[in-house]
Design a protein around this nucleic acid. Structure first.
Length: 305
DNA sequence: CCGCAGGATACTG
DNA sequence: CAGTATCCTGCG
């Protein structure tokens, strides 16, 4: 027996063919740090880092991305449709939004903390991820660290996803999740979150248009609606609005951001509600973008809490 | 083995 | 309102 050989053979058998690297003329400009942080910095759980590229999937798409001369090159499975995938990448990256002007609209001229954060990740972007997957990801996220959330989602896809191209599987959609028993969900290491997923899946089944209707609503209304779902409080609602619907004014306050705001803006004693109010009045219409700068910078210790 | 982690909720004062 | 126990699991 030669286990090593078997392993190698298995790897070869299951490996699928990817295209060579495509230049992408619409690519936003990225420095390397901002590139990695955008895809694998906490707004998405869909991407894994490899030696010289990142690999990720959303809905039925699989992408490898890397940077060359500050622009994205992409590679997709050879069987995928190039034009379709390119459009879907453009939407995912929200290239219709002008992040440079949003960045310029932030109060960095008078806010040296924010300026430091922006300097650390100048080309950071907010992704516009599929709403259903964003909701699922953040419903899994409470008191979990990113690697654990990724593990839950990986297990969910392996167990109940649909094969995109073997061996790649999508995440299970909400219809599929609604068909699962709570103990099947618990096997995904969801713990008490299993109940949230189960009840949310049932709710979405009863209200099939719920998610698709959200995007046209005013942000505050959409937020209240999202918070009707079990397991969705303010923080998760704001994450879904920001990372799944491109609502840039949404300002998720987790324990990190709470610490950052209190520490750097001298807001001791402020409640979450008051912090939210501060964020809106200080950062303005793109407060969520400011949040991501501060979050990323603090996480990498570019600004020290 | 214990404490805790990028949270929500129900319940208490 | 503000504070707190509880919900699970895996990892350090």
């Amino acid at each position: 027996m030669e286990p090593l050989n078997q392993t190698v053979q298995f790897a070869v058998m299951t490996e699928i063919e990817f295209t060579s690297w495509h230049k992408w003329s619409e690519s936003p400009y990225f420095d390397l740090k901002s590139f990695y942080e955008t895809f694998d910095g906490g707004q998405s759980f869909a991407w894994d880092r490899h030696a010289d590229y990142i690999e990720g999937r959303f809905l039925k798409s699989i992408f490898r991305l890397r940077l060359e001369n500050n622009r994205i090159l992409f590679s997709i499975p050879k069987t995928a449709n190039l034009e379709t995938e390119e459009r879907s990448l453009a939407n995912y990256l929200a290239i219709d939004l002008d992040f440079e002007s949003m960045r310029d609209s932030l109060p960095w001229r008078s806010d040296s903390i924010l300026k430091q954060a922006i300097d650390a990740y100048p080309n950071l972007r907010i992704l516009r991820q599929p709403l259903s997957e964003t909701l699922l990801g953040f419903l899994c996220s409470s008191t979990k660290q990113i690697p654990q959330i990724k593990q839950i989602l990986r297990l969910s896809a392996e167990s109940y996803g649909e094969t995109i191209i073997a061996p790649f599987k999508s995440l299970p959609d909400w219809d599929r999740l609604a068909k699962l028993e709570e103990n099947q969900l618990r096997n995904l290491k969801l713990g008490y979150r299993a109940n949230y997923i189960k009840q949310s899946a049932d709710f979405l089944k009863e209200n099939p248009d719920f998610l698709s209707k959200l995007s046209s609503l005013p942000t505050q209304v959409a937020k209240e609606r999202l918070m009707q779902l079990p397991g969705v409080g303010e923080k998760i609602a704001d994450c879904v609005l920001l990372f799944g619907l491109g609502k840039m004014e949404s300002f998720p306050i987790d324990t990190w951001i709470e610490k950052i705001l209190i520490r750097f803006y001298q807001l001791e004693g402020y409640s979450k509600k008051q912090l939210q109010q501060f964020a809106f009045s200080h950062f303005g219409a793109s407060a969520g973008y400011a949040q991501q700068f501060l979050f990323s910078a603090a996480r990498s210790e570019s600004i020290k809490i």
